[in-house]
């Protein structure tokens, strides 16, 4: 097991992502952050508060559970459904930024796009991920990445966040081959 991102690394990465989001969307007025539970939701909250600090305004932030939209439900044990909370502003004609902890096959994001499509029609949908570990199975790429981590498929990436796990850390488990 090796530590890929320490707590200060994570903090710096989220700060950078926040600035990039503001830059790309020319301010915070139109953006809605939607975190994918569980850890993506906390990351979205953190980005929202960083942006608020920078811009001095409240940022629309919610959660988008994708469980019911997964394409592998037949194969896996059912997961408990996590809350989906859309901020009062809605998503219609907004710039929605999906936030997840790890970008891997891209299937979670495909499910999230399906889920989002049921809720409304944003102007743009963008993707922020703390870690991009490669091995995409779908034509999906992140707009904002905390860190690119080259991994082998047999390895797993573990993200710890203080809200859930008591500390911040990203590590890689298993041997590279």
């Amino acid at each position: 097991m090796s530590v890929a991102l320490s707590a200060p690394d994570i903090k710096r990465a989220l700060t950078r992502i926040s600035h990039e989001i503001l830059e790309k969307n020319q301010g915070a007025s139109s953006i809605v952050l939607l975190g994918i539970p569980t850890r993506g939701a906390h990351l979205a909250q953190r980005i929202a508060s960083i942006i608020s600090e920078i811009e001095g305004v409240e940022i629309s932030c919610g959660t988008l559970d994708i469980t019911l939209f997964r394409d592998d439900l037949r194969l896996r044990a059912p997961k408990a459904i996590m809350p989906t909370t859309i901020p009062p502003s809605g998503v219609e004609n907004r710039d929605v930024i999906l936030v997840d902890d790890v970008l891997f096959s891209g299937r979670t994001i495909r499910s999230a796009l399906d889920a989002l499509g049921e809720i409304g029609r944003p102007r743009t949908v963008q993707l922020a991920a703390l870690v991009d570990r490669g091995h995409r199975e779908l034509p999906i790429k992140a707009d904002f990445v905390g860190k690119n981590l080259p991994t082998s498929k047999s390895q797993s990436v573990r993200v710890l966040l203080s809200e859930i796990d008591g500390r911040d850390e990203v590590s890689i488990e298993g041997e590279a081959n």
């Binding site: 569980t38 850890r39 559970d65 469980t67 037949r74 044990a77 059912p78 997961k79 408990a80």
Partner: peptide, 15 residues
């Protein structure tokens, strides 16, 4: 229907 048709038992947690 969700619980029965997605197989296995309900586990806690997202992701």
């Amino acid at each position: 229907l969700y619980v029965l048709l997605t197989g296995g038992s309900l586990e806690a947690g997202g992701n």
